[in-house]
């Protein structure tokens, strides 16, 4: 069993397929994510592919702040990814909400909705940093067993839901 286990773990590390979700980023981070695919950085060297379908993906790369509207979509996308999976929050906005943290319609960083494994700071994050982030995420992903090791959703998720449900009350009236 050990051999197959090792083979599986190696393969996981060598074949991370990313899905990139833009939560309302200013596109600065998005462009940097795509830059990783260009010949200059060529992440396919590490077996990394940019995939458009959460059902095929291993790593969810999220950029931008989370607001009540896209929180649901983000959560849904995350739910549709088969285990084992990891999440990387990209950029100042993705990690914490950035300069928009205090805005009335902003929940905060990605970790308010789904469990985040790696935070990549920067505004925007550099491609090298993003690649570094993926490598970090792979370490976590490597030994994760489906179903068993998924961390329970952060309590903030509940909060986010409440916020979403009560947003009428909190809307700014003109």
């Amino acid at each position: 069993m050990g051999f197959f286990q090792d083979l599986l773990h190696t393969s996981r590390v060598k074949s991370p397929w990313l899905i990139h979700f833009d939560c309302g980023s200013c596109n600065g981070c998005d462009i940097e994510v795509l830059a990783c695919l260009t010949p200059v950085y060529d992440v396919e060297r590490f077996g990394i592919l940019n995939i458009g379908n959460p059902k095929h993906a291993d790593i969810l790369v999220v950029s931008g702040t989370v607001n009540p509207r896209n929180a649901k979509a983000l959560k849904n996308i995350y739910d549709q990814m088969p285990d084992p999976k990891a999440v990387i929050a990209i950029g100042a906005c993705g990690t914490s909400g950035g300069v928009f943290r205090e805005a009335y319609n902003v929940l905060g960083g990605v970790d308010k909705v789904i469990p985040v494994d790696v935070y990549v700071p920067g505004c925007p994050s550099k491609p090298e940093a993003i690649i570094d982030g993926v490598v970090l995420a792979l370490e976590k992903l490597k030994k994760r067993r489906p179903e068993k090791d998924t961390e329970p959703l952060v309590a903030d998720l509940k909060k986010a839901r409440e916020f979403y449900e009560n947003r009428e009350d909190r809307q700014v009236t003109r």
Binding site: N53, K55, A73, L74, K75, N76, I77, D79
Partner: peptide
């Protein structure tokens, strides 16, 4: 069982 992919807009 999961829902079909509808760009993350399914009923969770």
């Amino acid at each position: 069982y999961v829902t079909p992919y509808v760009c993350g807009l399914q009923d969770p």
